[in-house]
């Protein structure tokens, strides 16, 4: 039962002549929260749907939970909340969850207890017996999350879970994702809401035009753009400024940006500044936010792949 939860060696999906996924490979460690990021139309949903047999990939090599991708029985250990999930209006919240329980083979006598617990977890206890037709968007999304968990899945796929949910609801959903991780489940989240993913994900991959253009742990990825920022009292004198700039350090008025992995590398710059009698008023470590990384990566990919 070791090895990654999902290991895609090669995944390609063509819709007619349009290539939605152009030979992607990625790996999702067990027990982690994995964020798949990408602009609209990047192929995020296509990726999840391929793993869950909802679409038929053109070419696919890889394994999920130790079995080849596309294996039916494995799907019993998987939970899924689709993008723009639509549940039958004539069912009650309880029945929606029970439907997923039945389809994944949860024994009848266990179903009731589990549904009760899940309704509680997603904060819908009072609404369990009401029809979905009377729910708000956020409530449906909560029921959607509950039905994805009813078979106690090893891996949960959430396609834009916070889509259309208010800020408070988003925080709740983030907490639920953290709860899933605490229970030992692997969580695979699709999103273009980077701030949210950044807070909850351990690993991310950025998808653009059907290709993975960056992947790794959040710390690693944002760490590549790590630098230190020094602010001085008054601008840096031109002579010193030239010297610093020739060493690859950015100087803009009273702001000095030093690309460095750790604080040790910054000390020489401080020494030089101090020697010139300059007063330092601030020194801080700063990381590239996921959003900056995302934008620069996606733009970079767009410039590289200039072809249509």
């Amino acid at each position: 039962m070791d090895g990654p939860a999902v290991e895609i060696e090669y995944l390609k999906k063509r819709y007619g002549s349009f290539e939605a996924l152009a030979g992607v490979s990625l790996s999702v460690p067990r027990g982690s929260v994995f964020g798949l990021l990408g602009p609209n139309g990047a192929g995020k949903s296509t990726m999840i749907k391929s793993l869950l047999t909802i679409i038929r990939p053109t070419e696919c090599r890889g394994r999920m939970l130790g079995r080849p991708i596309g294996d039916r029985a494995t799907l019993g250990k998987v939970g899924y909340l689709p993008e723009h999930a639509r549940f039958a209006e004539y069912l009650t919240g309880r029945e929606v969850i029970a439907y997923s329980a039945g389809m994944t083979g949860v024994p009848v006598r266990e179903t009731r207890g589990r549904v009760d617990r899940l309704l509680e977890t997603v904060g819908m206890k009072a609404w369990g017996e009401k029809k979905l037709g009377t729910y708000s968007k956020g409530m449906r999304q909560r029921i959607g999350l509950a039905q994805a968990l009813v078979n106690e899945p090893e891996i949960v796929f959430l396609d834009e879970p916070t889509d259309g949910v208010d800020p408070e609801g988003r925080i709740d959903i983030r907490k639920m994702i953290e709860g899933m991780k605490a229970e030992g489940r692997t969580v695979f989240v699709n999103s273009h809401l980077l701030g949210e993913v950044e807070q909850v994900a351990d690993q991310v991959a950025i998808l653009s035009h059907g290709k993975v253009i960056r992947s790794g742990s959040v710390a690693e990825l944002t760490g590549t753009g790590k630098h230190f920022e020094i602010r001085t009292l008054g601008p840096v004198p031109p002579a010193l400024r030239e010297r610093l700039e020739s060493a690859g350090i950015q100087v803009a008025g009273d702001r000095i940006g030093v690309p460095a992995k750790d604080a040790g590398e910054v000390q020489s710059v401080i020494d030089a500044l101090r020697a010139a009698g300059i007063v330092i008023r601030e020194l801080k470590e700063s990381r590239q936010s996921l959003e900056e990384l995302f934008l620069s990566a996606v733009q970079g990919a767009r410039q590289e792949g200039g072809q249509p």
């Binding site: 749907k49 869950l52 047999t53 909802i54 039916r72 029985a73 494995t74 799907l75 019993g76 998987v78 899924y80 689709p82 993008e83 723009h84 999930a85 639509r86 549940f87 039958a88 439907y99 997923s100 389809m103 994944t104 083979g105 039905q147 796929f157």
Partner: peptide, 18 residues
Amino acid sequence: PDFIAEGSIGISLSKPVG
């Protein structure tokens, strides 16, 4: 048509039922 609508069919197809 309702059953295979986007956002609804996924739930059923992603289950271990052929």
